[in-house]
């Protein structure tokens, strides 16, 4: 069962096109949505949440088209949308009063428990919060109305490593319930590497791959050597390569490389980097 299914989602802008994006977020899983800034992550997330109308294809959430989700359906989603989305003139106490009328299952006690856990003052206006505190406040809202699905667009962007780690801890806790799932976009790949079951990589508005994190590690490796050594691996073995001062480096398919070739482990950041900046064979 998929909590989110994106099928051939296309959205055209003057200077950018999201082209036929497809992937799934199965129930009980964390899906990391990676790609450089401007690759199409936020546009895809907006399409999933019904904030934009795609030109083609679309997204299904809890099995229903995104555009026809009811208030009750949307109440099952906790969204953190990158930049702060909470009214900056309000205090957390006031935010709680407002959210009580937005979410049918709003839990004051859960919200203030998160606020205390994140050391967020209840009587201070949100505009006086640091960026990290604002992100934590947004996450506290997302987690305080019984959401089963979290959709988080760059929730750790601009945060220091300690704050990022705290947020990842909260997400670990959220995933203790096997009905829950998370779609989290970030360009800080190291965060996602710790947390995710699946990785979806988007580049230039198109999905490059959508695979299980562990299978990526089995599938890809890094090769370093001379141009001749790289050529000897064969075209089918090389996903992308880069030229350096001391030779060539390449992202290769483990299964296609001749046995005995010395390879290094490819992290998700390496895979993203080679696909985004490397040359194709």
């Amino acid at each position: 069962m998929n909590n989110i299914s994106v099928r051939g989602m296309t959205k055209k802008f003057n200077d950018f096109t999201l082209g036929g994006v497809s992937f799934d977020v199965p129930a009980g899983s964390v899906v990391g949505f990676i790609g450089e800034n401007g690759a199409g992550k936020s546009t895809t997330i907006k399409g999933i949440l019904g904030l934009i109308a795609p030109n083609g294809g679309g997204a299904y959430v809890f099995g229903k088209p995104a555009a026809s989700l009811s208030k009750e359906d949307k109440n099952r989603i906790g969204a953190v949308l990158g930049e702060n989305c909470l009214p900056e003139n309000l205090t957390l106490k006031e935010v709680s009063v407002v959210m009580k009328h937005i979410f049918t299952a709003w839990q004051d006690s859960a919200f203030f428990a998160f606020a205390d856990r994140f050391a967020l003052p209840r009587d201070k206006k949100i505009r006086e919060f640091s960026r990290g505190m604002q992100q934590k406040a947004a996450l506290a809202v997302a987690l305080s109305h019984g959401a089963e699905l979290l959709i988080l667009d760059e929730p750790t962007s601009g945060l220091d490593p300690v704050a990022r780690d705290e947020i990842l801890d909260i997400l670990y806790d959220f995933m203790q319930d096997e009905r829950h799932s998370v779609l989290i976009s970030s360009h800080i790949v190291s965060d996602l590497e710790k947390l995710c079951d699946y990785i979806v990589f988007i580049h230039g508005g198109k999905i490059v791959f959508a695979e299980e994190k562990d299978s990526l590690k089995e599938k890809y490796a890094l090769f370093r050597g001379s141009a001749e050594e790289l050529a000897a691996l064969g075209r089918n073995a090389v996903a992308a390569y880069m030229r350096g001062d001391f030779g060539m480096s390449a992202l290769v398919y483990r299964g296609e490389v001749p046995a005995g070739t010395p390879l290094e482990r490819a992290g998700i950041e390496d895979i993203m980097l080679y696909y985004a900046r490397g040359e194709r064979v």
Binding site: L49, K71, I77, A79, L81, N84, C85, I102, F103
Partner: peptide
């Protein structure tokens, strides 16, 4: 300034 509309629409308003 607060991106409220985005949040509200994503939350069922």
């Amino acid at each position: 300034k607060d991106n409220w509309d985005k949040f509200a629409l994503a939350s069922g308003v």
